[in-house]
Design a protein around this nucleic acid. Structure first.
Lengths: 216, 216
DNA sequence: ACCTGAACACCGTTCAAGT
DNA sequence: ACCTGAACACCGTTCAAGT
């Protein structure tokens, strides 16, 4: 992809690339072609170096990904919290987690696959924690509310970010329901065979969860 | 692992194995050594055959996994629903999804990684759908309630089934919170740095979601 | 119909060697 | 300090060939 400024071929040393360039190229790869495209060999090819050069700078694939997630973490946290009441502000903060995940779905999927979701969302979670404390909860109570809300967000995100097009037609949720014949109302089966408005059910459920955990 | 009954070495034809044996061995592998252990080569070695033999019987890795999930699906659905009121029975049915996922966490993780969760849980979802209809909801209303409840279950499952020991210490949720210094109450930070009682927050939140979506 | 040997095109990672 | 060539031990999958 990028050629060396110093005319000649990459023989010997000095590519002019550093760790940050590796991470930047990795992010570019993930956002353009998805998490699966991020392989060490592919990244090396993109940078016109050997895989070993990548290894020298980033250590390993896991470290590269951790660094990538870390670098996105701060950027994704730049979101405003709105609302008058504590409950409204908590809902707003939780929606920020949802919105930022959607705005960066490739990176979010990568984090999810590699178990680094907590790292990616931590700044947004801290913001949410502040709003929960502002509502009057601390300690175990605050932790309980935060974890409940975050799990709720996570559940809807998994459903909403799942790439159904990558799944064979006959294994898709809608297909499974359309083939269901277990004495359910045809209208119910029909509704379940159609598309899902993830954002709508998320917001509705989020309000219920927040109302249940946060004193008015 | 298993040797041929017919004395000699596997030269030529007839291993005496069929598609079901492949699926059974795959299940055994997943349950004993986790989803990552399920590779075509590993499975072939376990059965004392060539990878091609596996391919001949199951088609591909994706088909093998789909078949594996399908075979677990029915078995995992054998759960009773208890409770007097519609709400109680819905909560019971939702807990069955949770309980069966825990009882079969290796297979559940595999399904989750391969996008076949819907296939695995479908019978339990059908049972839940029946209880929702028994509560008086049909069509879009029933679908809305079902999807909300299932997403909620899914969110808590992701958190509860995640293998934290596979994540480097400094990327774990607890570690991230213990290092957080953003003006939060020390008691809150301390609580968030400790272990999570997934089952407790799940049950509490589930009740809130069900109450919000199902008329009493 | 059922199975093997050999190969293709990938992975992550490491070692010894070069400048 | 920084980079390459070559290799190791894996993947999923396919092709031609055997019985």
């Amino acid at each position: 992809m990028s050629q060396n400024a110093t005319s000649a071929v990459n023989t010997g040393r000095r590519t002019g690339l550093d760790r940050d360039d590796m991470v930047a190229a990795a992010l570019h790869l993930v956002e353009c072609e998805g998490p699966a495209a991020l392989t060490m060999r592919r990244l090396a090819a993109e940078l016109d170096v050997t895989t070993n050069t990548v290894y020298w700078h980033v250590g390993s694939r896991d470290e590269l990904i951790a660094e990538l997630i870390r670098s996105c973490s701060a950027r994704m946290a730049e979101r405003e919290i709105s609302g008058e009441t504590p409950q409204q502000r908590i809902i707003s903060a939780a929606r920020n987690v949802w919105d930022s995940a959607f705005a960066n779905r490739a990176v979010t999927s990568l984090a999810h696959q590699t178990g680094t979701t907590a790292l990616l969302e931590h700044p947004l979670e801290v913001a949410l924690a502040h709003e929960i404390e502002a509502a009057g909860l601390t300690g175990e109570e605050a932790a309980f509310a935060l974890r409940s809300i975050l799990s709720t967000v996570g559940g809807f995100l998994v459903g909403a970010l799942r790439d159904e097009s990558a799944i064979p037609t006959d294994l898709r949720t809608a297909t499974l329901w359309s083939r269901t014949d277990a004495g359910l109302d045809p209208a119910t089966v029909s509704a379940l065979s159609g598309p899902t408005d993830h954002a709508l059910i998320f917001v509705t459920t989020l309000e219920a969860v927040v109302t249940a955990h946060i004193p008015a």
